[in-house]
Design a protein around this nucleic acid. Sequence first.
RNA 1: GCCGGUGUGGCGCAGUGGCAGCGCAGGCGAUUUGUAAUCGUCAGGUCGUGGGUUCGACUCCCACCACCGGCUCCA
Length: 674
Amino acid sequence: MAGVITVRLPDGSTKELPAGTTALGMASSIGKRLAAAAVAAVVDGAEVDLDTVLPDGAEVAVVTADSDAGRTVLRHSTAHVLAQAVVDLWPGAQYAIGPAIADGFYYDFSLPGGATFSDDDLEQITTKMRAIMAEDQPFVRQEHAIDEGLALFADQPFKREIITGVAGDSALQAEASADFVPDAAVVTTYRNTDSFVDLCRGPHVPSTGRLGHFALQRVAGAYWRGDEKRPQLQRIYGTAWESDKALAEYLTRLEEAERRDHRRIGAELDLFSFPSEIGSGLAVFHPKGAAIRRLMEDYSRQRHEAGGYQFVYSPHITKADLFEISGHLQSFAEGMFPPIEIDEGQSYYLKPMNCPMHILIFRSRQRSYRELPMRLFEFGTVYRYEKSGVVHGLTRVRGLTMDDSHIFCTRDQMAGELDSVLTFVLDVLRDFGLDDFYLELSTRPEGKAVGSDEDWHDATEALRAAAQDKGLELVMDEGGGAFYGPKISVQARDAIGRYWQVSTIQLDYNLPARFGLEFIGADNGRHQPVMIHRALFGSVERFFAILLEHYAGALPTWLMPVQVVVLPVRDDHNDYAETVADSCRKAGVRATVDIADEPLGARIRRWKMEKVPYILVVGDDDANSSTVGVNARGSERPDRGVGVDAFVAAVVAEVESKGSPEIRRDSAAGAAGR
RNA sequence: GCCGGUGUGGCGCAGUGGCAGCGCAGGCGAUUUGUAAUCGUCAGGUCGUGGGUUCGACUCCCACCACCGGCUCCA
């Protein structure tokens, strides 16, 4: 019957509506709440504005503000308002692109006369944006032919460039500008007022009044289309959410991340520093930080030894020749410190990688297949000339120590070796408390790869098989491998949901060939070994930082330099406190006594801030009955009258299981609650 | 490397051209403490470095260094 259409909803049901009903109309027919929360719709798989008239038989879903897709719409629309505000405040400003990104949005501008934003500008821009939102201006969608579009943006060169791109190679442009998906020879715009129109595929919220839960965060420079040879634009970052509550929660999350910042924790706990006298990106580890690092390294050594790795050492500098043979000088010279010239033109470089050294160890004599797989391991300190703007705490430094292994094996051993290496790596990471992973497989890059198609195929499939065997999510990074071989990287999720790339396992066809590596096979012939590069922590410094952020400084007991501190209540309890500490030490628990020359509360506070796992308070009652009062990290109230032996045994067990007091407390609380 | 910001005792901060301050931490003294800050007192800074402007610079200008947020890069 004419005048009625039927649409299908996401739950499979159908709904009859008068012809001409818009997506918003449909939402209203379902419920007021839904209509109020709606910001866009998906019709037959395409995201559209709410005022889109529904065709008969369409599949329709309402996009609400509190969904990921809905927030994207909010953020994108807020970005438009930002652009409108900036153009209003800086007449003649050119606006480039303003997409939604994870948790927010940005917009790039070129200001008249090369002016730049400063943080102070954000306030007046925000005020202007709120004014635009208060006016509740509609977002009006229009379609234009290419030449119309070019005329419309006559004084907006960045928009013209995008439009010109649309007219040209559309696939390429879609790649270049995530903000914009071109469609044949038509461009779409959204107009808020006579004075502001932006090129955009949409969808947008119906009007600016639907926005408002936003905050501008910072200004930054950003190259046009991410190309450092192109002009640098002025970028403003912001965030926007469906409600003030969601916005506040997000800002709280940012604060939490700030509290966990390893640079802050490193300073608070006196773990490391970056003296400017030494140079940018070069850390020194203080005693407490060094103690933690040593525990990490010692455990790693222990595991590697058990895992059949052989330990080697190599120097920090080498003649240029070595990195010419390896190819690093040709490819990565700008990432290396400049050479040291000695002995009439002889150049020495600080090593940026350990692999050539390990290769020379392999090549130092003839090798038999019986020696393979040969797994060489070293905590190898390398130096990389990171550009001045990129150094960042311990995560991006100029001097770092890789827990670097190079495995030489036969082609037949390759698949099995990859599998066991991956198992080993995940196992050790779990011991450090990282247990939520996904894997990323980086495949052959276009064009510049070395090695035969067959080699690449075999290696990639071997990596894929090893990865799939682990039952973890596998994400493809097509074309993301290095020129010399495919790679698996392990991405670990931390306590607040951030992913960090830690371990990498990489096949290499390049270096064995460049160095002419060979071994004598069972057939008495010469063969080239396969080489696997493997880093587990990646960089020890960076892994240290990841652990600090993951645990917010409260490391598991086995990694804490001081595990137990004993506080005598009065100074006549000092001797008993020493006895307790001795009992700990005898069991291999790191314990110290903090004598009673300050009030107990003050001492407890100090050690709490140190994040010591266990604070023991001992007084008359304890000295009389060989007990301690246990104040475990993370607990609200102390546990009085615990027997010394029982306490020590519990800590020993916790160290053995690589646990933390917080976890033990939870399970204990669960048991006590019954 | 590029854009923006910041740099004041060990740490966190105040100080808009005219005598460098506060809190915490530190030293000393007193306090003898039962679960997150006892009281008093003392000391500590050529204000990131180097130039310049000025009668006078923490303050204004220039260069450099370092750090922070991004961009680009990350073997």
